[in-house]
Structures are given as C-alpha cells and as structure tokens.
Amino acid sequence: MSADSPEPTSHDAATAESGPVAPTGRRRSRRSRVIEHGLEWVLFESRWLLAPLYIGLIAALVVILIKFAEELVHLVTHIFEETPDDVVLGVLSLLDLALLSNLVLIVILAGYENFVSKIAVARDAEDRPNWMGHIDFSGLKMKLIGSIVAISAIGLLKDFTDLGTSEALDNTALTWRVVLHVTFLISGIAFAFSDWLGEKRLMLSQQTHSND
C-alpha cells in the first residue's frame, strides 16, 4: 500500500463486511408496487359487490311472476263478465308485466356479464339467448331505454282506453303522462344518435390509422 492512499475507516470496513446497501429509492419503489398491486386487487374484486344486487333482481322477477299469475287468473275467471274494453285492459296489463320482466332479465344477465364475470355455465348451453355475450354497455343502455319506452306506451294506451270510465285520469295527469312518454322517446333517440356518432368517430379513426 502506498503512503498516499488513505487508511480504511471503520465505516468502510463495516460496509465491506455487510455488502452493498440497496438504494433507498429502490426500496420505496418496491413498496409502492406492492401497495399499488393490493389497491388494484381490491378495486378489481369489488365488482363482486354487484352480485347481491342481481340476486335481488331475481327476487323482483319472482314478484313480477306472482303479479302476472294474479292478473291472468282474474282475467280468465271473469272472462264472461267483462266487456271487450276490460279484456283489452287486462291483456295490456299482462303485456306490461311481461315487458317489465324482460327488462329485469336483460339487466340481470347482461349487467352481470358486463360488470361482474362471464357466465361460464351458459357458454355451451343450447338454450343460451343469442344476445348474451354480445351486448356491451351501449347495447344494454339501448335495450333498457327501448323497454322503458314500450312500457310507457302500454301504460299510456291503458290510460286512453280508460277515458270515459270511473278510473279515467284527469286532463292534467294524462298530460303529464304524455309528456313523460315523449321525454322517454326523445331520450331514446338521443342515446341512439350519440351511439351512432361514437361508432362513426371510431370508424373514421380506424380509417385514419389504416391510411397512415
């Protein structure tokens, strides 16, 4: 060892014995990745909190079925006592409940597949509906608004059929029902137009990238 070289200190000796010290920034980065992974896992698994909501909708579907059976029994047992207008109203009530049950079923199946998990048991089933697995959030939104407009139209038709009877609505209530139905209709058209614009913009973007 030359005379000019400094003698090793006790700190240098301890460092040589313990090996190289990992940088503090690297330790923090590793800790951040662990925290980030845990947070993302919690966020991703939180989608299962929606499952009880869809189970509750199944219970609502059972309630609709019970009311449908009640309306059907009443219609059949009083078939010879009711007027043709009463029969029309009874059938419209059944249609209203049927459309409502379709709406609930669409929300259950499409919502579960879009936001929770794929339904594996229905993947190879012969009776699987054609729309399952092909409805995204935009398609689900359009089916919902379409069902709501149809239900509102049936309710409005029932109100007009009741005109001249004791169960008829007054002019103010009937006007608000018409306004509500028109609002649903305009909302459906606006949703469809916005989806069309989105698809058009996506097609233009794809064409631009393909030309580049």
Rank of each mutant, 00 (worst) to 15 (best):
E45C: 12
W48D: 15
F160N: 07
L94N: 02
L100I: 01
Y54Q: 14
S194D: 14
D12T: 00
N102S: 07
F160K: 04
A110D: 02
L43D: 11
R28H: 13
F191K: 05
I189D: 04
P52S: 10
D170N: 14
D12N: 00
E167R: 11
I64K: 10
V104S: 01
I189P: 06
S138R: 14
G56Q: 12
E81A: 13
L49V: 10
D162E: 14
D162T: 01
T165E: 06
L180M: 09
L163Y: 01
E17H: 06
P6F: 09
M203H: 13
L61F: 09
T165L: 06
F68P: 05
V179K: 12
H134A: 12
M1H: 07
V178Q: 06
E17F: 02
D212C: 15
V91P: 00
G198F: 07
L65R: 10
S187M: 09
L39S: 08
I189W: 10
V34R: 14
I35C: 07
D136L: 09
V178L: 14
T208K: 10
A190N: 04
G139E: 06
V116C: 15
E82S: 12
K118M: 12
V149E: 03
E113I: 12
F160V: 04
P129C: 05
T24R: 11
A173V: 11
S138C: 07
P84N: 02
